[in-house]
Design a protein around this nucleic acid. Structure first.
Lengths: 365, 365
DNA sequence: CTGAAAGCGCTAACAA
DNA sequence: TTGTTAGCGCTTTCAG
């Protein structure tokens, strides 16, 4: 300590010619690089950003200094000053990052984002409107360049606010009718109708509906598809066979057990499960009642190992990877300045026959 | 256009007294709030950050202006100037956000992060060392306060660099021996040994090992547990029954088929699958050969629906949620300044008996 | 082709 | 209690 020459009064550490500034948490700054290379700070900026018009000699000196100091530009400071203000970060708000559907969407978004030199902030809304807003707000507070949201359906106003401010937003999986926003959606209604038609084609006349929270737009669309398909073949909706507002496997299992214990004349011969957790709950119910090979079932949304159960579970598969990819593409188009009118991209669903959906109704009914 | 009074030369839009600056991409700034409230900018800063020593009258005026303008602070600009430089963002690099294990870790981290007012940058390394480094670097370029990483095992040097610079880092799932870093790990060796012992206790003497890339530290640990358990009961490792460096379901299925088609005297009577995708591949192999009820199997790491297969798949379950929670806690302790020596938290595994692991070896052998 | 000065939105240090 | 000034690390503007 005492052996070192004290700084002259007024000299701040960051301006000592003999050592780099270390204010930036152990990181070298552009100023440090400039000093080491013996050039102006703007030249460093040019080299780092690969702007044209720098002599190769300068360029080489700067690059050497960059390497020596392990310099990395501060993306935040850069965004602050930059004319377009871009942070090269986007936010993704899904239902639950731990859910395989959401995870696949997130992963696909990540791939596209990487190609744009952009990082992904990820958050879970958990079917909770206020949480959706808080997560999205935490992201916009960090000045993300855009937002991809699977809306809960309970907090569409904050999305409207962000759109009004000009923030690029793309909705995935669930729609928000009335908002002027790009959306990437599965063909929920068509897919549900295909599932139900598949069952009625096999002769089923009592097809039950098991669906989740009707605040969720996909739940409503899938129910619409179910109803329309029944009407189209001359069957109406029997309200006793409809259970909505389920949440999670356990409640679905309970509801399915209840339906399967109705008197024989009312009992459904087939189940349409409008969401993957509900499908799994229904599988458990069928197992526990020993009916897995007797009552038909088609689920909406595929899940791992559906083919390894017995019977295999017939599903209307979505394509979460494609949903994520399309959403990210649409978002970056907006970020890059596109002023097209908002557009909805429909991602098709596919009926995957595995056995459970091909079970015929009991003879003579 | 022509009806508006043109700005006097030299007057910049941001300094017009009659309108808020809109440079910040449609957002009001602190300056705008200050002007509207008729106070100094520092007072706004105090109110926004809930610093003490502001009169209630001022506070109310500022709050009103904040609401009227829809003002939200710029977290990036704040971090830039703030003494501690905190961005209130952390980065999480897992193998693949679409994988259920990683998703559960990520979700648990998110919960803890929310409690600290912190957002999560998420990225997938995809068993690729260079990609791991790039993703982590993209995060540190945004000045994250810390990093949670499931290391590929191929790029430990960049982690060492970050640690040296003083960036808080916590490793999850996989260890990096020799690095002075907090780690949160499953008891891989113990768990694998428990799985194998469970099989040998049932009388199996030829237990095969199916494992993934041995660059991954968990694969090595699990193999060690397998070997030790065999040695402990007086059985050695039969190299013909060991297949490592598998990647993905398909290669695991192929390897299992090969093992199960060995001549009867060499054929394994039980399989130990060291990773969940490998377990699923092995299930497919057993199914296709009609041996699912004849050859025993225990998998490492649980997966959804394992209990619904027949037989149910016996596994050594990990607790990814707890791993994520502990990792986040450890990280925030570091971020909050803890200087404890690096510590490893061991998260226990649990043997879950479901049927496949309780199959006995053929009589008389 | 290069660099000095200004300032992005905010907070720290200091003054009033 | 309140406001003013400087400056975080960077890019923009503009002068050499």
């Amino acid at each position: 300590m005492s052996t070192e020459t004290p700084d002259p009064p007024g000299a701040r550490a960051s301006e000592r010619p003999d050592g780099p500034s270390r204010r930036a948490r152990g990181r070298a700054t552009m100023k440090d690089v400039a000093r080491l290379a013996g050039v102006g700070i703007k030249t460093v900026s040019r080299v780092v950003n690969r702007e044209p018009g720098v002599s190769t000699a300068m360029s080489a000196r700067v690059d050497a200094a960059v390497r020596e100091l392990g310099y990395r530009p501060d993306a935040g400071a850069s965004a602050l000053r930059r004319a377009d203000g871009r942070s090269s970060a986007i936010g993704v708000v899904v239902d639950d990052v731990a859910n395989p559907f959401s995870g696949a969407v997130l992963r696909a978004v990540e791939e596209v984002a990487i190609g744009h030199g952009t990082v992904v902030l990820a958050g879970s809304a958990d079917e909770d409107g206020p949480r959706e807003r808080e997560v999205a707000q935490a992201f916009t507070d960090r000045r993300v360049d855009g937002l991809i949201v699977a809306p809960t359906g309970q907090a569409d106003d904050h999305l409207a606010d962000e759109l009004r401010r000009g923030l690029p937003v793309v909705l995935v999986d669930r729609d928000a009718p009335g908002l002027p926003v790009d959306q990437v959606l599965s063909t929920n209604e068509l897919g549900a109708a295909a599932a139900v038609t598949h069952l009625t084609d096999a002769g089923h006349r009592r097809v039950a509906y098991l669906g989740d929270l009707s605040t969720i737009s996909t739940a409503r669309r899938r129910f619409d598809g179910y109803r329309q398909a029944l009407i189209d073949v001359g069957l109406g909706v029997d309200d006793r066979l409809v259970v909505a507002d389920l949440h999670g496997e356990a409640s679905a299992e309970g509801a399915a057990v209840h339906l399967l214990q109705l008197p024989p004349e009312q009992r459904p011969t087939a189940l349409f499960c409008a969401q993957n957790r509900i499908t799994v709950g229904a599988v458990r119910a069928l197992r526990s009642l020993g009916l897995a090979h007797d009552v038909a079932m088609v689920g909406f949304d595929d899940f791992p190992l559906a083919d390894l159960l017995s019977p295999g579970v017939t599903v209307v598969a979505q394509d979460p990877g494609l949903i994520g990819t399309e959403a990210a593409r649409a978002l970056f188009a907006r970020i890059d300045g596109s002023r097209r009118p908002p557009r909805t991209v429909w991602v098709p669903t596919t009926l995957v026959r595995r056995g459970s959906g091909e079970i015929r109704p009991p003879q003579g009914r």
